[in-house]
Design a protein around this nucleic acid. Sequence first.
DNA 1: GCCAACGTTGGC
DNA 2: GCCAACGTTGGC
Length: 154
Amino acid sequence: MNHWLFKSEPETFGIDDLAARADRTEPWDGVRNYQVRNMLRDDIRPGDRIFFYHSNCKVPGVVGLAEVASPPRPDPTAFDPEAKYFDPKSDPDRPRWYLVDVRYIRHLKRTITLAELKQYADGPLEDLPLVRKGNRLSIMPLTETQWNFILALE
DNA sequence: GCCAACGTTGGC
DNA sequence: GCCAACGTTGGC
């Protein structure tokens, strides 16, 4: 089982939105970055654990736990001309973009803020892209050690 | 294949 | 709202 951090803007789709969904599950659509696509397609598997992270908001940080609830499959929003993330270069015979379903597990008791995580940028979290300057990955892997370290801060 | 222009991300 | 960092696009 692998560990991941998924970013989402709470004003668009936050942890409360996920918890309110039917089956507490939502397709993680709209990824349009090749590095992230490769992770979705090749490395992210059902049962993997997810830190749900709120970005682009007042207090960015890890706010909850979720899990991967499906194998990867083509992102249907890429085929839909009406969709915000429509990509004419992706077609069902040769899909360019992928997604997985994400299922809510629980809220953290408190937000573990980015500011707090950055305190460990020269220590236990030095290899975590999240705390490095200029990182723009919306999904990133964590080692089990990084995962356990962050969760222990709760 | 280079690289300038442009668009997006996301912290602050 | 600003802007640094980065990815993508497209002319050459």
